[in-house]
Design a protein around this nucleic acid. Sequence first.
DNA 1: GGCCCGCCTTGACCTGGATCAATCGGGTCC
DNA 2: GGACCCGATTGATCCAGGTCAAGGCGGGCC
Lengths: 269, 269
Amino acid sequence: MAGPSRRNAAITLMQINTANRNVAMHMRLAKSACSECPIRHRAVCAECDSDELAVLEQIKSYLTVPKGGSIAVAGERLDYLSSVVSGCASISKTLVDGRRQMVGLLLPSDFIGRPGRSTLSFDVDAVSEVTLCRFERRAFEGIVKSSPNVARRLLTMTLDELDIARDWQVLLGRLTARERVAHFLLSLVRRDSGEVDDGLFVGSANLTLPLSRELIADYLGLTIETTSRQFTALRRDGLIEIPGSRQVFVPDLARLSLETMDDDGGPIA
Amino acid sequence: MAGPSRRNAAITLMQINTANRNVAMHMRLAKSACSECPIRHRAVCAECDSDELAVLEQIKSYLTVPKGGSIAVAGERLDYLSSVVSGCASISKTLVDGRRQMVGLLLPSDFIGRPGRSTLSFDVDAVSEVTLCRFERRAFEGIVKSSPNVARRLLTMTLDELDIARDWQVLLGRLTARERVAHFLLSLVRRDSGEVDDGLFVGSANLTLPLSRELIADYLGLTIETTSRQFTALRRDGLIEIPGSRQVFVPDLARLSLETMDDDGGPIA
DNA sequence: GGCCCGCCTTGACCTGGATCAATCGGGTCC
DNA sequence: GGACCCGATTGATCCAGGTCAAGGCGGGCC
């Protein structure tokens, strides 16, 4: 690398400010029943019994954040903890000179916030329109105390996130640009396909990318240009097809997974 | 970067095998009372009342792993969870071609293992001689269920580790070699000094590095050579003195912290 | 239709850090 | 004391990915 990117600091900051202003545009939605909730069995409430669920139901509220809007700002007070019900959000840090690194990608059922602390150390932004199921922090902390099923689920989810963050560290520290892009595409495949049978990449897959090239670059610790060139290179080598800039077809997942040096789901097992 | 390092794959693997053999050299130590334990108020047991502590005391055992020894191997069964009582251990992943990335550095009071799962996805190795306070997994999982103070403490510690991992992602994804080394030194200062008053780097500090240049390189996602050159460059610029290869004196912490682009504890706040 | 505006792609060139290869100490063993 | 070893340093060179700078392309708007 020829020094991490410092370009577009002004543009970057402008985008962030725009995002902050969008906070005012949040819309309130009517509650819907937990029993109907699409993330009922994967979110922080997954292991709740009906009593516990009733308590959560009482304190929850919904919030929709528009695409590009800010969900939380590093260092600022955050009085709600929430689950992503739909949409996609990013966790990232922007350095003072504009360099940015994404450190988390939040999809439906992922949890935002840190019980026991009122600030986060990272920015959380809506990549697409995001609907949140929110809990006022104090109330939620009480529930964590009284409901072991919520506490246990939260611990499991946090441990999973820690594993993801550490795999991501390996990607950022040691993989080449091509390996990073291949790994990114396969991680999307894994998430799409129920994220259970990881390690088995067989057949083909059609992907809709949730991120722009710029955000993919932020995710992978690369520049937009390098990211774009790697997509082109993978296409030229017949590993992927790109019918649209947000569409990727992988004709042979096993062959693509070889590009990550992995023999069972990534060099990053 | 000119492509992540792929050198020394054979040597690396040999070292790992040597480490594995060391498992057989583990020594058993007599128990000592929890009330006398140096990590009593920082480890997973920190919030236990005397009843809970008594239960833990009953199932705990000590284990000393020699320097270079293996504490856990990625993917292999691990039937004990443990706290580091003394010494220093690393969490890392080695790719099939020998590239290695450290993703965690364990110091006294840090916890090893994942309740609810019998394997880890990373290797854990003793950087120096390490003494562990171990709990058989099944028994410990029972305690987590019955003792909310242990469960809560475990959640807090895991959330802290997640923040550390994400800051580390920013370092690996976006900082220059010089910034990485400066950041590494300052993170050691912070850990040494009670790790409370972070953000305030004033005065000078004398450091004993817990890691060799090779392991520092694994930590920072660099090669040994680049790491060594950055130490030399910081010395040449008067930011540090190097009385011995494991000794670093920082005459002006504030000045060194400017090298990380940070104005209150790192660009990585 | 034609213009504009955001993305995305592509090309030419540069450079930070990797690679390859000595060399330098300090420690240990005979 | 000398030979050896192993980690650390330093030098010379290379190259992956960053930087700078044009285009290309699809979608919305008049």
